Simulated assay, not measured.
Amino acid sequence: MSKRHVSLKTLAQALNVSMSTVSRALRNHPDIGPEVTQRVQQLAQELQYTPNPLAIGLLKDRTNTIGVIVPDLVTYFFSSIISGIESLANEHGYYIVIRCSYESYEKEKECLENLLKLRVDGIIMCLAQETQDYAHFNHLLEAEIPLVFFDRVCRPEEVATVVVDNQEAARRITQHFFESGYRRIAHIAGPAQLNITRERIAGYQQGLQECGLPFEEDLLVHCDLSIASATAATQQLLALSPPPDAIFGVNDTAAFAAMKEIKRQHLRIPEDVGLVGFTDEFHATVVEPTLTSVMHPTYEMGREAALLFLAQMDAKTPIQPRQQVLTTQLVVRESSSRAV
């Protein structure tokens, strides 16, 4: 007899008893005699039977699975958040199913539909950068299916979210540049529709104002979060007359691209151009010079998102969406440490 896909039905047919008898025998139910219980448990062991949590969950109208959608599976940023989600989910008896949108709006919708077909209990996700229409979340909200956004979020009045203090972090970066002697501070921002972009621009502008520096539109450029786009943005900035003497990237990917282009143009970091990233990827500590960056509490963000999800699962009635804001830390390294 094949040992693959061994189910209660497989055991019941082999022993010529009902599935309910098998189920109760596996749980040592007193209604089942010791001889039958022994036969059932012995065969289950021989065939390496294990309970199917999905099937059990469907019977209870709860699968104990969480759908997780991220825009990227490669970067440390998202893998660390996923680890945080999985850690807390496992502590509470939940499994996670991960899908990747690859920054595509259409792929994001497809991921959402496929996870709901798998009967996940709800969704924890980060928006794709292409997403500007949020109608595909209407069904979840109307059906009261738990939904949590992290990092890139929308509809915070309706959906629980976990974000960081983007505006305050960007303000600190700008102030740090000023205190290090930089005066033409540029910002490579992300796509305009993302909340992280808007919040970091607001912090950048606030920092300039507090330092008594004018906001110059030419020193603010956007990229699509790719290396190629960030490289082009850096080239645009360095072609200005005069060019910026400091660049703040929307994330570390943008900062790494800027670093490569600055070096290609034979400029020195931090003497000619100071550089700061955001998210503090592992590579920030191994590039030359080491990259000043904002440390993102990624693992904590994942656990907080899972907590917000479980709060919705455990609530007997719909609860008011919570907005969790986590604190970041500016980690100063060589790329912005110019002698004043």
Rank of each mutant, 00 (worst) to 15 (best):
E130T: 14
F178G: 04
T285C: 06
V250D: 07
S80T: 14
P243K: 03
D218C: 15
T298Q: 04
S80M: 01
E168F: 09
L267C: 02
T65R: 03
R183K: 15
A135Q: 15
D121F: 00
P146R: 13
I66V: 12
P289R: 06
Y95S: 13
I319E: 03
Q129V: 14
L208Q: 02
I196T: 15
Q320N: 04
S87T: 03
T131N: 04
P297I: 07
V273S: 07
H266F: 05
V221M: 06
L307Q: 15
L115C: 06
V40S: 05
G190P: 05
L237E: 11
S337I: 09
Q205P: 13
Q265R: 05
S7H: 03
T174C: 12
Q329L: 03
V97I: 12
L220A: 07
M301K: 00
I85D: 00
L115A: 01
S2Q: 14
F256Q: 07
Q175K: 10
E199D: 06
G212V: 01
H92S: 09
G33D: 15
T37D: 06
Y95I: 00
E110W: 08
H136C: 07
Q320L: 03
H5K: 15
A257F: 12
I32A: 06
N195I: 08
L326H: 00
S241P: 03
L116G: 00
R27K: 15
M259S: 10
M19K: 14
N28T: 08
V325T: 09
K316Q: 10
A192K: 13
V163E: 13
H187E: 10
S101N: 00
Q129T: 14
I96N: 01
V325F: 01
P243C: 08
T75S: 04
Y105D: 14
Y105W: 13
F149P: 03
S80N: 01
E91K: 08
N16C: 08
Q45N: 09
V120D: 12
S229E: 01
L54T: 00
L140Y: 10
K9C: 14
S241Y: 11
E158C: 01
G249Y: 13
M313W: 10
Q132R: 14
Q206T: 15
V286I: 14
A189M: 07
T292M: 10
L307H: 10
E158A: 09
L308R: 12
A189G: 02
A170E: 04
L291R: 04
E106P: 07
Y76D: 07
E271A: 11
I201G: 01
F278H: 07
E199R: 08
D314Q: 15
N195F: 05
R27Y: 05
E103W: 01
N166D: 13
L310R: 09
P321H: 00
L140W: 08
A12L: 09
R152M: 06
V148Y: 00
R322K: 10
Y49F: 12
I98V: 11
A305K: 06
I247R: 10
Q329A: 04
T234W: 05
R172I: 11
Q167V: 00
P156R: 13
D133F: 03
D224F: 09
H283E: 14
L11Y: 13
T65I: 11
Q205Y: 05
V36Q: 11
